[in-house]
Amino acid sequence: MTRSVNKTDAEWRAELTPQEYAVLRQGGTERAWTGEYTDTTTQGTYVCRACGADLFTSEAKFSSHCGWPSFYQPTDADNVELIQDKTHGMVRTEVRCGTCHSHLGHVFSGEGYPTPTDERWCINSISLKLRPAQA
């Protein structure tokens, strides 16, 4: 069973930096090529920066050259929630943390990347923390 994190807006503002809050709680996007994990190859698990829930593994990370970390699948479908996003004059699929409902990024399919799922989970670095694998 997935746990749920429910906090007030004031609690989120107190815990997150202004930049983290803008992306995670207000659905913003960090600028391309500025994120901490865009080119990271360290082995481990990427967790939600807001609540620590497991989201993606380094094994599912690939280089898409899009300016944000890209994954071809989450650790478990229940760890994320997908929401139709009709902002900016297009229809996309928003990805949120399944535990705290923070905005992570968007998922795209059918772009032709050589991945097992033909999906690109384009995720803001600022939405993640890397928990390195134990050596």
Rank of each mutant, 00 (worst) to 15 (best):
G105F: 01
L128R: 01
E119W: 07
L104V: 01
L128N: 01
L130S: 00
P132S: 14
N124V: 13
S125Y: 05
D118W: 06
L130I: 01
V107I: 11
A133I: 08
G110W: 07
S127C: 14
L128H: 04
H106L: 05
D118I: 13
W121K: 06
V107T: 11
S109Q: 13
P114Y: 10
G112V: 12
P114S: 13
T117K: 08
K129Y: 13
I126T: 03
G110L: 11
Y113C: 03
E119I: 14
T117I: 09
S109K: 15
P114F: 07
T115G: 02
P132K: 03
G105H: 01
R131Y: 03
H106M: 08
P116W: 13
T117H: 02
Y113M: 09
H106D: 15
C122R: 01
S125T: 10
T117D: 08
G105C: 00
H106F: 12
F108I: 12
W121I: 07
L128M: 02
R120K: 08
E111C: 05
R120S: 04
H106N: 09
T115E: 08
H106E: 05
S127K: 03
G112F: 10
I126D: 00
G105P: 03
C122A: 08
I123N: 00
S125W: 10
R120A: 03
E119V: 09
R131G: 02
G112L: 10
L130V: 00
T117S: 08
I126P: 04
P132T: 07
P116T: 09
S109M: 15
L128C: 04
A133F: 06
P132F: 03
E111V: 07
V107L: 11
S127R: 06
Y113P: 04
G110F: 11
S127H: 07
W121R: 04
I123V: 11
G105T: 04
D118T: 14
E111Q: 13
C122N: 04
I126Q: 00
D118K: 08
P116S: 13
P132Q: 09
G112Y: 14
N124P: 15
T115A: 04
S109W: 07
G105Q: 00
F108T: 13
G110C: 06
F108R: 05
A133V: 09
V107H: 07
A133E: 13
L104R: 01
G112E: 08
P116C: 15
H106S: 07
G110P: 09
G110R: 04
L104N: 02
I126M: 04
I123C: 08
W121N: 05
I123E: 02
W121Q: 05
T115M: 03
I123A: 00
E111K: 06
T115N: 03
G112H: 09
P116A: 10
F108V: 10
E119R: 15
L104T: 01
C122I: 04
D118C: 11
I123Y: 07
E119F: 10
S127N: 07
P132A: 06
S127M: 08
D118P: 07
P116I: 14
S125K: 04
F108D: 06
R120V: 01
S127W: 04
L104D: 03
D118R: 14
K129M: 14
Y113N: 15
